[in-house]
């Protein structure tokens, strides 16, 4: 398969074009856009949405949804900010504990959807209330402190490469590894035809559970990335990520009916959504127009994707 057909098959062509246009517009409005420092700071602020969008993409490819990711990121952020300094053996121990909780949350969603067969839309909406309540219980008011080592490491560079880029690259490398393994194939195939997977003698329960667990590893990365920026805890921090991640997936050409698309599309979709904010800011649009403009651009992007998918059929 040539790269071109691979792009086409995964519905990546429109989002590639769109992200190129929006980045070009941003670079035109902000001449310093390609400076190393500005690239680093843009990557740092885009990384959390990119990571949670990739997480959502994995669940959507599996033909489910997860409406609890935004609340989940907030809960993990509050947890990270609630640790006393040097507790659990310092930052590594705290990160490990947070990862454990993230996988527990993912497993809960997975059990409700895969084992008990609840519709994911409503079940994860219910768990989002649980996660939000949990975050508020840990941190009724915004506050606390995230270990400064996490913030320092996030803004560092390794051999000239900013750490957020390394995190994103590592996450995508992990997905590429999984998608070449049979587990990754099963996740996508289950999305396109659960019956076929079942008849092939593969446990649907285990595949769906696996998809949620894998996705919540990415949710954990997103929570660490956003915590490294704010360095404090806020139970409402990531509320917009739930719907933002779904929008990123749709703009990225991933079908909500499952099985079609690629997490790379979600990554680019998140870039489009994140850079729109930059463009609107640098274009000097008055603040009262910003929301409306952003809404129109998103609707335009969605219309474009839908049109493209219809003509492709």
């Amino acid at each position: 398969m040539t790269p071109a057909t691979s792009l086409k098959q995964n519905g990546l062509v429109p989002v590639l074009g769109m992200s190129a246009v929006i980045v070009a517009v941003n670079a035109w409005l902000q001449p310093s856009f390609f400076d190393a420092s500005s690239i680093a700071s843009n990557l740092a602020s885009l990384a959390p949405l990119i990571l949670v969008s990739v997480a959502q993409a994995i669940v959507i490819l599996n033909r489910e949804l997860d409406l609890s990711m935004g609340a989940g990121v907030s809960l993990l952020n509050c947890l990270l900010a609630s640790f006393a300094p040097y507790s659990l053996g310092g930052v590594p121990g705290q990160l490990a504990a947070t990862l454990g909780v993230a996988l527990l949350l993912g497993a809960t969603n997975g059990v409700l959807v895969a084992v008990l067969g609840l519709p994911s839309l409503i079940a994860t909406f219910a768990t989002s209330a649980l996660w939000f309540g949990g975050a508020l219980a840990i941190m009724p008011q915004p506050g606390g402190a995230v270990g400064e080592a996490i913030g320092d490491a996030y803004y560092a560079t390794v051999a000239g490469v900013p750490v957020p880029l390394l995190v994103i690259a590592g996450a995508m490398a992990l997905w590429m590894l999984v998608s070449r393994h049979r587990v990754g194939r099963w996740i996508v195939v289950t999305g396109s035809s659960p019956a076929a997977v079942f008849q092939a003698g593969i446990s649907l329960i285990r595949v769906r559970l696996g998809a949620y667990l894998l996705a919540w590893f990415f949710v954990f990365l997103s929570a660490v990335a956003i915590s490294a920026q704010t360095l404090s805890g806020d139970a409402r921090l990531a509320q917009s990520y739930t719907l933002g991640s779904i929008a990123a997936c749709v703009i990225g050409g991933i079908s909500l009916r499952g099985g079609k698309g690629s997490p790379w599309g979600a990554l680019l979709g998140a870039v489009v959504l994140g850079v729109i904010g930059n463009v609107i800011y640098f274009a000097g649009i008055p603040s009262s127009w910003q929301e409306f403009t952003k809404g129109l651009i998103v609707v335009g992007a969605l219309g474009f994707i839908v049109f493209e998918q219809r003509t492709a059929r």
């Binding site: 989002s128 309540g133 949990g134 009724p140």
Partner: peptide
């Protein structure tokens, strides 16, 4: 608020499970 959210979420889950 924390307790309210948790109870709301659990109620909804309980309903879904009961229905199931």
């Amino acid at each position: 608020e924390a307790g309210r959210q948790i109870i709301l979420g659990s109620t909804l889950l309980a309903f879904l499970l009961l229905d199931r």
